[in-house]
Computed example of a mutant assay.
Amino acid sequence: MSQQSSLAKKKRRNQNIAFGIFTFTSYAIVALLFVILAFIVIKGIGVISWEFITEMPKNGMTEGGIFPAIVGTLCLVLVSMVFAFPVGVLAAIYMNEYVKDGWIKKIIKQMTNNLAGVPSIVFGLFGMSLFVNKMGFGDSILAGGLTLGLLVLPIVIRTTEESLKAVDDTFRQASYGLGASKWETTSKIVFPIAFPNIITGLILSVGRVSGETAPILFTVAAYFLPKLPTSIFDQAMALPYHLYVISTSGTNIEASRAMAYGTALVLIIIVLISNLLANALRKYYGNKVKTN
């Protein structure tokens, strides 16, 4: 009995140590996030004003506002999501619901994983070659949005696939038992149940697209363009590239640095608002699935 008691105490001690390490790591990550956010807020809050958000940039972007960059970023996010979300969701549905387990499915998954690991600058070069030059879109919001859509496509596919896998097979079997076809089961039963979790891919994609610089550098971003785009075939400023330019410019360093922190804060706020809206959408559809 004494030996069993000592073994039980040792297991509890090891368990408490492991839980302590996990807890410390979790709180350390949260604390690091708050430190980064606090640093950006402290440095950038003094620059934020109505004029900074709504005016055009002036004097080599050391004065004025960042309104064109905000509009350009939102346009790029919208175009990329309109492309990536439907394509990624449909691809994941095909792989999870229609393709049987085998070497074809393994190859598709492996290629998706490899695509997720490709550096973003490679996507930028590919987008420039295909959308800008080959397809004749030029440096435009359409070319940049499609390039960013390709960049986040693996994220949408993987999150959607995992969401579909999480749906209990009893729902599928019950639907088949009632005489529903494969497509009816997928579209009316499986997809609505998985949709709240599928939105997670949308949240991650919006955050990734909003902060990318390399792909838009080759496909859409303009150095200084104090006007708003009028169509998806126009060039546009974007917050990540704007932040890069004013951070590395050699003129009026203090003013540029202050605007850089302000731009970073605005970018974080846009991503935060987008995530909150997506989370609200996920909660709405989650409650709708529960009530149904």
Rank of each mutant, 00 (worst) to 15 (best):
I155S: 02
I93M: 15
T186E: 04
K165Y: 09
V87P: 06
I70K: 03
A180N: 12
I121G: 01
I121D: 04
T147D: 04
V87G: 12
L90M: 08
Y176P: 11
L78N: 08
M56H: 06
F131T: 07
N96K: 12
C75I: 10
F126M: 14
N96S: 14
L150H: 10
V132Q: 00
A180C: 14
F83I: 07
E63Y: 03
F123V: 03
A180R: 10
F67S: 07
A116M: 05
P57T: 11
G127T: 00
G177Q: 13
P57F: 13
T186P: 10
A174V: 13
A92D: 05
K105F: 08
G179R: 05
L142W: 02
I155T: 13
K100F: 09
V79M: 02
W103M: 15
I155H: 01
L164T: 08
G127M: 02
P57A: 04
N59V: 03
V82F: 14
K182D: 02
G149L: 01
E55M: 09
T186S: 12
G127I: 00
P154V: 00
N59P: 01
L115C: 02
S175N: 12
T186L: 14
F137V: 11
L130C: 05
K105L: 15
Q110E: 11
G144N: 01
L90F: 09
F131Q: 01
I104L: 15
I66T: 12
G64I: 08
G117C: 12
N133M: 05
I107S: 08
E97V: 05
G138V: 04
T160K: 04
I155E: 03
L148K: 05
L151C: 00
F171H: 13
A116L: 08
G144A: 00
M135L: 15
I157G: 01
A143P: 04
K58S: 12
S140N: 03
L90T: 13
E161P: 06
L90D: 02
P119H: 09
E97M: 08
A91V: 08
I70A: 00
D168F: 12
S129T: 06
E63Q: 07
F137M: 09
D169N: 15
P86G: 00
L148A: 02
M111R: 11
M135F: 13
Y94V: 15
F137T: 02
N96A: 08
V99K: 05
G117E: 12
E184K: 15
G144Q: 01
G124A: 11
V156L: 05
T160F: 07
F123E: 09
S80P: 09
P86D: 13
I157K: 03
F137P: 02
K58E: 12
G177N: 09
A143K: 00
F85G: 03
L76Q: 06
Y98D: 06
V89H: 08
E184H: 13
T160S: 06
K165I: 11
W183V: 09
V77R: 00
F137E: 04
T159S: 07
L146C: 10
P154G: 06
L150N: 03
W183F: 02
S129C: 02
M111K: 03
N59L: 04
T54Q: 10
I157C: 07
